[in-house]
């Protein structure tokens, strides 16, 4: 079969709702797009461990500490499945780490914002995980089998995290004035960056059409963003805190909330590396990797020694 026929057959399979598996033929661009997207997602999980991880040692109660530890650990686990899913496409985890550490690969820009108070742990769970779930639920039906299956498991854990985050804020909002103010301040700081998590507006998102065709995406950035706003506003009302957007209002005709303009210059500036914590996040990942080099080398040397000893035993 020539490439054109292969591509047609490939597209027919996707159109028929079949899953593409790692050993199946796929267009090179499909493979590359998936390596990029899955690894970005994996990097986001492990960089995402840092802002929340910095609150583990200061969590206000034993119950919250255990829940936060478990949550951050889950994110490490998500990173692990996602790197494995990317590896099925013929790239090694070390190479992917290298792309992250050198700044070549991106991760979700939201993690370049600082977690400043305990309320931020609630806001991250509620808004950041909430936004992530909307994307990820869509991805459970994506065309690439290993990615879709990883997403099914990840989504279950993420929705638990989101409820946990919301419950942290609910406790603050039912607490003292100081706690409620802490919750409002966290919403003020995390709201707009959360809306930016869905990516640029549709007219500025050049990859969307191809991604929709390959069923990597089933909805556009703007559709997902709208869904997030519609889900979240009633939840903010229950908390009794206000979204920092004077233009936000229910649009009866559209059956959706209208919301104000997003400051895309901030978004691009953070993507380019100028967010509040880009440098610290990359430095922390690089330090963990560099400081761990001798440990990884030792593990390898030890397993080689063990294998040799085993060989000797067999020979005798």
């Amino acid at each position: 079969m020539n490439t054109q026929d292969l591509e047609k057959k490939f597209q027919d399979r996707i159109d028929a709702g079949e899953k593409i598996e790692p050993k199946d033929w796929m267009p090179e661009k499909y493979r590359k797009t998936h390596i990029r997207q899955i690894s970005q997602h994996a990097h986001s999980e492990i960089v995402g461990m840092l802002p929340e991880g910095n609150w583990i040692s200061r969590a206000p109660s034993l119950r919250r500490k255990v829940a936060l530890l478990a949550k951050v650990q889950d994110e490490g686990g998500h990173g692990l499945y996602l790197y494995s899913a990317a590896e099925t496409l013929g790239i090694s985890r070390d190479e992917l780490f290298n792309q992250l550490h050198t700044g070549k690969a991106k991760y979700s820009s939201i993690f370049n914002y600082p977690a400043l108070t305990w309320a931020d742990i609630g806001a991250i769970g509620w808004l950041v995980d909430g936004a992530a779930i909307i994307n990820q639920v869509m991805l459970t039906r994506t065309s690439f089998g290993p990615y879709a299956r990883a997403m099914v498991r990840i989504c279950k854990e993420e929705s638990f995290h989101q409820r946990q985050g919301y419950e942290i804020l609910l406790t603050l909002c039912n607490g003292t004035e100081v706690q409620k103010a802490m919750a409002q301040d966290a919403l003020n700081r995390w709201w707009w960056p959360s809306l930016m998590m869905f990516g640029p507006r549709d007219e500025e998102s050049p990859n969307t059409a191809q991604s929709v065709k390959w069923k990597i995406k089933r909805k556009t950035n703007d559709e997902l963003r709208q869904q997030f706003v519609d889900n979240t506003i009633p939840q903010a009302e229950i908390l009794g805190i206000t979204v920092p957007d004077p233009d936000l209002k229910w649009n009866e005709e559209r059956g959706h909330y209208d919301f104000g303009a997003i400051d895309w210059s901030e978004f691009w500036n953070v993507v380019k590396g100028n967010g509040p914590c880009n440098k610290e996040r990359l430095a922390a990942r690089n330090a963990a990797w560099d400081n761990g080099a001798w440990v990884r080398e030792a593990a390898l040397a030890h397993s080689e020694k063990q294998a040799k000893r085993e060989e000797l035993k067999q020979a005798i």
Binding site: L50, G53, K65, Q73, G76, G77, G292
Partner: peptide
């Protein structure tokens, strides 16, 4: 818990957490 997110590999990070 101070090490969470800073382990020498993802596997050891998860295990120590």
């Amino acid at each position: 818990s101070e090490l969470c997110g800073h382990g020498p590999s993802l596997e050891t990070d998860i295990a120590l957490t």
